[in-house]
Design a binder for these strands. Structure first.
Lengths: 200, 200
DNA sequence: TAAATTAGCGCACACTTGTTCGCTAGCGCA
DNA sequence: TGCGCTAGCGAACAAGTGTGCGCTAATTTA
């Protein structure tokens, strides 16, 4: 059994090494197999024992990052149930994630508009998941029509991701300001949507 | 004088060649100097007669794309003055640009979240310009406070760019649907903002 | 007309890249 | 204990990269 554990361990080493390479200046398409192997402390050829491609590694990274974000949202929802505004709690949780897992978020951000169709699709799946969850939540809690809830959720998620993109390079003070602005913008959307719901 | 004209001509050839390379699968950081030179019909070393770096070429491309977009918005404003809804006209004009100049828009989109700080800053400047213009416009035409107008403009521009990112890979039918959704979302924001203006 | 400038080129160099091919050392099962 | 399996390695390859150097040919200037 110790054999498989060792294999999992170096697989983890590869993944972690790749995440660490994805800093401010690097993207998935710009890191090389050899570079990852070097950082993971293995020979370039050993990489193939764990991943068929560097693309396969990339998809794994996107999945891991998306999973981390999804887990975060569950955590945020539980906090909401414990009290506190929906919007404020969600935004603060999101911002915490962006700061604490900047490389993961950067990965999602870059590959969302990146050059690889497969990566783009993978990120889009994650975002769509996000929108659906938020849409269901607001439909249940506000009585908005499913269509309007979806419209609102889509707009909100897009704004949140957009704000996250700015926050990632900002100072803590700037980040607070951006969070405040974002919260106000989300409230505007919520008000606007409820207005349209009342009209129809 | 014919000497300088020739130089400008090959400079243009380089720029155009680079734009043509920036298709669905390529980004600024993934195109090589030699590749651009090959596409422009010159020797790799001749590239240096026109640009110091490939980064200098990149900044030139960002500037050109931003300029094209700005010119487009002027055109949109003139159409609005001639009649037609502000939101509808702007969205339609924007979508036309995305389709007609997909490589230019893709460039802005990718480098907005790309790996080069210089490119990111350049794109951000263009977007900020956008937001300011829209903010001024709405402040003048709706009587919203400058702060609220800015908040609204920022949210709108972010949504528009986000929608453009999706539209670029979509079929014409999908694009129409996305445009419709975007228009509704922008109206929601407008309504929400006016509500907040009335309250304060 | 003679001299100076310069856009463009070919050659060369030192690197980095992905991937194939045998090989070895050691774990896991019988 | 002995045998099979396999994670990991080193060498090698063909291809691509950025960039420095010196040259040519033609335009511009004096």
């Amino acid at each position: 059994m110790r054999r498989q554990q060792q294999k999992l361990k170096t697989r983890r080493a590869i993944i972690d090494a790749a995440f660490n390479l994805l800093d401010e200046q690097r993207s998935l398409s710009s890191i090389s197999l050899r570079e990852v192997a070097r950082a993971a402390g293995i020979a370039p050829t050993s990489f193939y024992r764990h991943f068929k491609d560097i693309d396969e590694l990339g998809l794994t990274l996107v999945d891991e990052a998306g999973l981390a974000l999804r887990q975060l949202m569950r955590q945020a929802r539980s906090r909401i149930d414990a009290g506190g505004g929906v919007i404020t709690t969600s935004v603060n949780t999101f911002m915490e994630f962006v700061v604490a897992n900047s490389n993961e978020f950067r990965l999602l951000l870059r590959e969302h508009s990146g050059t690889s169709p497969a990566f783009r699709a993978a990120v889009l799946r994650e975002i769509q998941h996000f929108i659906e969850e938020l849409s269901d939540y607001t439909a249940n809690h506000t009585g908005l029509s499913p269509y309007l809830a979806g419209l609102q959720a889509e707009a909100m998620v897009k704004l949140v991701f957009s704000a996250g993109a700015e926050a990632i390079d900002a100072s803590p003070a700037q980040r607070d300001l951006q969070a405040q602005r974002l919260i106000q913008q989300l409230r505007i959307i919520a008000k606007g949507a409820s207005f349209y719901a009342g009209k129809t």
